[in-house]
């Protein structure tokens, strides 16, 4: 697949002056159509640094397409994406897929899956081992990482995926509906795990979720998208202190933010 062409043109340029202070990712004039049907036309977005931005919107509105374009998995027709003014090539990013079963390498043991991006980066065996041990300690892993992915439960597999994504200390972490294939209990556990990681690392995260509760619970801001052709419907901030916990879900602040999101969403769906 081609790398997104537009980013190369802009290499070396600084973040556009129009971006607010604390912006990490700037998206400018993004165009994308599928089979002549426009999905994004002249799309602009600023994603703040060291925050979690949740992306929420109607099914098929282009949430996955957006993060795939920003992460370089999908080429776009025109536009520019910069990370702190740098191009994607100069930026360390990671991606957690919804379908962990198809994203992990079943021929490698879980621990070797985690080390793989480090090997790609040319790190020595000792460095890989040290980083893997560090991750195991910080995740308080209780299961055997010397097993193969298919020998682990769904939640364990997604945990391994997340560890693999975090191993190279990414500047930005993209997550596309990472918990939607897990049962509710596991989802709750994983949300808090992700929040712990965020608090420990302050990695900029972009989280696509089809679960509004989850989207708001984890977010510093919720990006609400319209139906195609996709625009920003609204960006709803949620400033509740971290760590958030199950009681957060019943707090006034949460209920208000979620209600606001739902309002916007329903307005957009009915349109």
């Amino acid at each position: 697949m081609n790398a997104p062409v537009a980013t190369d043109v802009a290499s070396g340029r600084a973040t556009p002056a129009s971006a607010p202070h604390g912006t990490h990712i700037t998206i400018r004039g993004l165009y994308k159509s599928f089979q002549g049907q426009p999905l994004y036309t002249n799309f602009d977005l600023d994603i703040p640094k060291a925050q979690i931005t949740s992306v929420f919107g109607p099914n098929g509105c282009g949430k996955s397409t957006l993060i795939n374009m920003v992460s370089g998995l999908l080429p776009f027709d025109a536009g520019q994406v910069l990370f702190d003014g740098k191009t994607l090539t100069d930026t360390k990013i990671s991606y957690v897929f919804q379908n962990y079963r198809e994203a992990l390498f079943p021929w490698k043991r879980a621990i070797d899956n985690i080390k793989y991006p480090l090997q790609l980066a040319g790190q020595s065996k000792a460095e890989c081992n040290r980083r893997a041990e560090e991750l195991v300690a910080s995740f308080e892993i209780k299961f055997d990482l010397h097993r193969y992915p298919y020998e682990l439960s769904g939640g364990q597999q997604q945990l391994v995926s997340i560890m693999r994504a975090l191993a190279p200390h990414p500047e930005v972490l993209f997550l596309d509906e990472p918990f939607s294939a897990l049962d509710y209990e596991m989802t709750l556990f994983m949300r808090d795990k992700l929040q712990d990681i965020f608090q420990a690392t302050r990695t900029t995260m972009i989280l696509v979720s089809h679960d509004l509760e989850e989207a708001v619970y984890l977010a510093d801001q919720v990006l609400l998208l319209t139906r195609r052709p996709t625009k920003i419907a609204e960006i709803v901030p949620f400033r509740s202190a971290r760590p958030r916990h199950p009681e957060t879900l019943t707090s006034d602040e949460f209920v208000r933010a979620k209600a606001r999101c739902l309002d916007v969403f329903q307005r957009e769906v009915r349109r």
Binding site: M1, L73, Y95, L104, L120
Partner: peptide
């Protein structure tokens, strides 16, 4: 070959050749 695994390797910074060798082949 499943495209997701190739995409996963690519997004981790694997070259086309590495994707072929480490993922597609297996």
């Amino acid at each position: 070959a499943r495209k997701t695994r190739q995409a996963a390797a690519r997004v981790m910074g694997a070259s086309r050749f590495r994707v072929m060798l480490d993922v597609t082949l297996l």
